[in-house]
């Protein structure tokens, strides 16, 4: 059980790290949103599931799983709102050709 929790925690760490690295490395706003929107969602989800497994089966674990559910609902909205606002205000996406 502890090993399973550890696997979830470490993979969560890995995805959050990759997301942070992606935000630094990608060339423009939209591509950075790709890293932030997806990496964070899965990273946090895996991390919190790992904590729930570590804690065992009780009410606190159930609350942790509810946090995962709400992050799943909220994170895509954040990504969409940011990209929509940028697009409406006329920010041009970076392309290979314009390099």
């Amino acid at each position: 059980m502890k090993t399973l929790a550890l696997i979830f925690l470490l993979s969560g760490f890995f995805f959050i790290t990759v997301a942070a690295l992606g935000v630094i490395r990608f060339p423009d706003f939209y591509t950075r949103l790709h890293a932030a929107g997806k990496g964070d969602t899965l990273g946090i989800a895996l991390f919190v599931i790992g904590l729930a497994i570590h804690n065992g089966f009780n009410l606190v674990s159930f609350k942790l799983l509810l946090i995962v559910l709400f992050i799943f609902l909220a994170n895509p909205i954040g990504g969409h709102v940011l990209s929509r606002a940028a697009f409406k205000s006329g920010l041009k996406p970076w392309t290979r050709k314009g390099e």
């Binding site: 995805f15 890293a35 997806k38």
Partner: peptide, 18 residues
């Protein structure tokens, strides 16, 4: 996520945004 992670960790950064 694995796909995006591979792109991020690839030194050549094989992206073609559109």
């Amino acid at each position: 996520n694995i796909e995006v992670a591979l792109i991020v960790l690839n030194p050549k950064m094989p992206i073609n945004p559109q």
